[in-house]
Computed example of a mutant assay.
Amino acid sequence: MKKVLMLCAFVMCVCFANAQNGQNVIKVNPVGFLFGAGSVAYERALGAKSSFVIAPQFGGFKFGGVKYSSLGLGAQYRAYFSKSKSAPEGFYAAPNVNFVSGKIKYDGFDEESAKDKFTSFGIGALAGNQWIFNSGFVIDLNAGFSYQSFKYKNDENVNGFNLKGNGVFPRVGFAIGYNF
């Protein structure tokens, strides 16, 4: 967790050091924190109709005898389509990729516990809209899909759990932030 916070602080320092009026956005997903996942994203306009987003992410929860934790990184290229607005504001489409590494620990089943590590690679597409208000406040809403491929260190079922799998998953995003 400390590493993620340090990385976020570093990204924010870089953002403010290179800030040009209106071309940068820093944002967080407040809903994700309620479910044990977090992401801080930095978006930089590349031109009038495109931008690049990089988003460190982390997750963690404990439910019953299962403990989960992960760290990852996502990236997007956004193409903006609004005629009267320029990036990073308006309607956009965004291909994206992400990589996540984590571990799962199963406790209290049949007097034993087990651990498993995993990595996941994903590729997908999003469509959304980003609003920037005069105060600099930003709201970003998007939806799409992602194909996730998981690789586990231990390929056996553990205590009846079979959390392994690959597939296409829906994605819905909500973020708030600041434009500078």
Rank of each mutant, 00 (worst) to 15 (best):
Y147S: 08
D155T: 06
Q130D: 06
C13E: 07
A9P: 02
L7A: 15
N154F: 01
Y178M: 14
W131K: 13
N166Y: 03
M1P: 03
A87G: 13
A125F: 15
L73D: 04
G122N: 05
M12H: 07
R171M: 15
S113D: 13
K67P: 02
D140I: 06
F118Q: 02
S113Y: 04
G144E: 12
P30T: 03
F61M: 10
F174S: 02
P88R: 11
K3P: 01
V168C: 09
Y106D: 11
Y152N: 05
N154G: 03
L126S: 06
A19D: 14
Y92S: 12
N162Y: 01
N134V: 03
G38V: 08
F133P: 08
G128K: 00
F81C: 14
F63G: 02
N166S: 14
N162S: 14
N157R: 08
A45D: 11
K105D: 12
F109I: 14
N157H: 00
Q20G: 11
I139D: 10
I26W: 11
G167L: 09
Y92M: 10
N162C: 01
G167M: 08
N159Y: 13
K27M: 14
A37C: 00
L5G: 04
A17M: 13
N166W: 08
F35H: 01
F150R: 03
L46R: 09
K67F: 01
C13R: 00
V66D: 03
V14R: 01
G60P: 04
Y80F: 15
G38A: 12
S146Y: 05
G59W: 04
V28K: 01
K164L: 03
N98S: 14
P95L: 10
G38I: 04
N134T: 09
G74E: 13
Y68T: 02
K62G: 11
F145V: 15
F145M: 15
P95D: 03
D107N: 07
